[in-house]
């Protein structure tokens, strides 16, 4: 399990990644994060929601209402062009972080 402090800078990044191929909604995203990280990282609901509003404000994602088969209203999120660009920048940034921090790792 990784603490939320360490991951703070990368929450937005992970959410954008999950939206690259298809639109998604709150729980689905948190489930996928848990699954992809093999249960090593669980994003808290409040963290997730905070990231959604932040990303939305920055114009990286858009929210819209979708209707489930059972008739329930649900908020879906869609990545924007700016969001994709931001994601690419973050990927490059991550490579750099990995390179720099990696130089200080001794196991």
């Amino acid at each position: 399990m990784v603490g939320s402090d360490v991951m703070r800078g990368y929450n937005d990044f992970m959410i954008l990644f999950l939206l690259l191929d298809e639109d998604s909604y709150g729980y689905e995203i948190s489930r996928q994060i848990k699954q992809i990280s093999e249960g090593k990282y669980i994003m808290k609901e409040t963290t997730l929601y905070s990231a959604f509003t932040r990303l939305e404000k920055e114009g990286y994602i858009e929210a819209y209402y979708g209707t489930e088969t059972n008739g329930k209203r649900r908020t879906y999120y869609r990545i924007t062009k700016e969001g994709r660009e931001f994601y690419r920048e973050k990927c490059e940034e991550w490579e750099l972080v990995k390179e720099i921090v990696g130089k200080f790792v001794k196991m």
Binding site: G26, Y27, E28, S30, E45, Y49, T75
Partner: peptide, 16 residues
Amino acid sequence: RAKEELATMMEDKYNE
């Protein structure tokens, strides 16, 4: 809005 969204996420997780 936050409350509604959080409620939905929690409900989804609970059902799963």
